[in-house]
């Protein structure tokens, strides 16, 4: 079973990389652009047939290693 894990910086944490990307897109003429936040993406595959159990395991992986909970949020989606 495969899942996507998206990790993003929390709202109140400054994201200087996202800011630079945002400014560059603006400079490229995307006037409608409101904001950009940069994050990380993981594709995680597990040997587990029960989706609920698999999600619990992935959550554990996130909290133990993939995510720094002080500054980051995450979202798990089955793919």
């Amino acid at each position: 079973m495969k899942f996507s894990v998206t990790v993003t910086l929390k709202k109140d944490v400054l994201d200087p990389q996202g800011k630079v990307v945002q400014t560059t897109l603006k400079n490229l003429g995307f006037a409608e652009l409101r904001s950009v936040r940069q994050g990380k993406f993981f594709e995680v595959e597990v040997d587990e047939l029960d989706q609920r159990k698999a999600e619990i395991k992935i959550k554990e992986m996130c909290e133990k290693l993939l995510v720094n909970l002080i500054i980051e949020d995450y979202k798990i989606v089955k793919i």
Binding site: V13, L14, P16, Q17, V20, I70, I71
Partner: peptide, 16 residues
């Protein structure tokens, strides 16, 4: 900080 022995974290330098 990653081990939790010290709290907080070190982010990328503000000026990148």
């Amino acid at each position: 900080t990653e081990t939790g022995l010290l709290k907080g974290t070190l982010l990328r330098n503000k000026n990148l």
